[in-house]
């Protein structure tokens, strides 16, 4: 009987000790903010274009954390969807066409002689990439432009073009090789799986 009581006593004491420890750890090592939202946000392209229907990338990251589909981000494209799928351990689904299609990287370019200096695009730019003042010609800082399109609509004289960033010798990257050639699949007799009947 004593041993049973002793065992119970020890277990109770242990559980109290560990409970206290866990409680302390919960307070002491509390993680501020929502780490998963941060991680999702880090994968999003930060164009702040709002094509996903949220006012910026972080709100969309929060929405994803709350269960929204991961395929609402056209600027990120399939690569971002894949990265999100890997992070959240869900299936990578194709991009939702309702939110737009994946396009090549673009920057806004203002046709400067047509600009009337209304500052509307400056107010629309989510990353402050447009330079100018009222009644002064505006220009886009190409390096800062995320290609979000948000400046195009407000322009009263339609002098903003979205120009694709072409590949230069500096930005060019090697293609992926084609992989195992179709002809080499037939080299080894036992590899030939088709046309066995012949």
């Amino acid at each position: 009987m004593f041993t049973v009581l002793l065992a119970i006593g020890i277990l109770v004491a242990l559980s109290l000790v560990f409970g206290a420890l866990l409680g302390y750890a919960n307070v002491r090592f509390r993680v501020e903010g929502d780490p998963i939202v941060d991680q999702i946000d880090a994968l999003l392209p930060q164009t702040q274009c709002g094509q996903c229907g949220h006012p910026g990338c972080r709100p969309y990251a929060e929405a994803i954390a709350n269960g929204e589909a991961i395929n609402h981000c056209p600027p990120g494209g399939q690569a971002t969807i894949q990265a999100l799928a890997d992070l959240l351990d869900v299936e990578a689904i194709p991009l939702d066409g309702d939110h737009g299609t994946e396009t090549a990287k673009r920057v806004a370019v203002i046709r400067e002689d047509e600009c009337i200096g209304c500052t509307k695009c400056i107010q629309a730019c989510p990353v402050d990439a447009i330079l100018g003042a009222a009644k002064q010609m505006h220009t886009v800082i190409a390096d800062e432009c995320t290609g979000c399109d948000l400046c195009v609509d407000p322009c009263p004289v339609d002098c903003i073009d979205m120009v694709e960033i072409g590949v230069t010798a500096k930005t060019w990257s090697w293609d992926k090789p084609q992989g195992i050639a179709a002809t080499s699949l037939n080299i080894i007799a036992t590899d030939r799986q088709t046309e066995v009947a012949h």
């Binding site: 999003l44 392209p45 930060q46 702040q48 910026g56 990338c57 990353v127 800062e144 995320t146």
Partner: peptide, 10 residues
Amino acid sequence: VKSDLAKQRF
């Protein structure tokens, strides 16, 4: 790097 910069600016 670019997206971090865009985020900062945003």
